[in-house]
Design a binder for these strands. Structure first.
Length: 225
DNA sequence: GCGACAG
DNA sequence: ATCTTGTCGC
């Protein structure tokens, strides 16, 4: 059973990130591509009713078939503040992950990991509190910059922070389609994170894990009373 | 000081 | 994130 404390304010949230960031493990390669179980997580909001629904969908890495699904519904406990997304999403996401019958070998998050103002995005936070290998695959470049990668699937370019540090990679998952933004979460190398992302995106821009989790959390939100 | 800014 | 049908294209 894992959980995330809800900070009283933004300053406290940043302090929590600064403390937890020291626990991120970056010297492991991560699971082999195409083997084991991979979970995708995502959340949907209903600000009117103050609800948040999270979904965790587990795929067989070899076939990309769904093998298990879990959802959780809760109340919005923190506002959306760029850089503090984890405090808004993780409490419910962790509840959904806890409902799975078996721990996955990798968790794919909808957002960033190391590519973050304090080097501790959503994917790092999830990895540290669960102990599971994790990566972040975001749909937007946030505050980072990159040179346009080649036009073919698999082409990539470094994702760079304002200070010049490479914090991830802009990765083209489909020919001629806008890239996704991959960064390391916990216990996975950037090369492996990109290889995993490509393997999970054989047909669409967004990884199958995230696609399944996205549709499931929306359904869970609709069916929430 | 004023924006910009993952979801 | 969310408001949102049909439609253009492979």
């Amino acid at each position: 059973m894992t959980s995330v404390k809800t900070p009283a304010d933004e300053a406290e949230a940043r302090a929590v990130q600064d403390e937890l960031r020291t626990r991120v493990v970056l010297d492991e390669a991560g699971p082999a591509v195409g083997r084991g179980l991979i979970a995708g997580v995502d959340v949907a909001y209903d600000d009117e009713r103050d609800l948040v629904a999270a979904a965790a969908v587990v795929l067989d890495a070899a076939t990309l078939e769904v093998v298990e699904e879990a959802t959780a519904v809760g109340h919005v406990s923190f506002p959306y503040v760029p850089g503090l997304l984890a405090f808004r999403e993780l409490p419910t996401v962790l509840a959904a992950l806890d409902a799975l019958s078996a721990a996955p070998g990798l968790v794919v998050c909808d957002g960033y990991g190391l590519a973050h103002p304090r080097g501790f995005g959503l994917a790092c936070h999830l990895g540290v509190v669960t102990g599971l290998p994790s990566i972040g695959v975001a749909k937007n470049p946030f505050t980072f910059t990159y040179e346009e990668p080649g036009a073919r699937r698999g082409d990539a370019a470094p994702l760079v922070a304002a200070d010049g540090a490479v914090v991830g990679r802009a990765l083209r998952t489909q020919d001629g389609i806008k890239p996704v933004y991959v960064s390391v979460g916990h216990r996975v190398s950037l090369d492996n994170a990109c290889a995993q992302t490509l393997a999970l995106s054989p047909r669409f821009r967004i990884p199958e894990t995230t696609r399944h989790a996205d549709s499931l959390c929306r359904r869970a939100l609709r069916e929430a009373s």
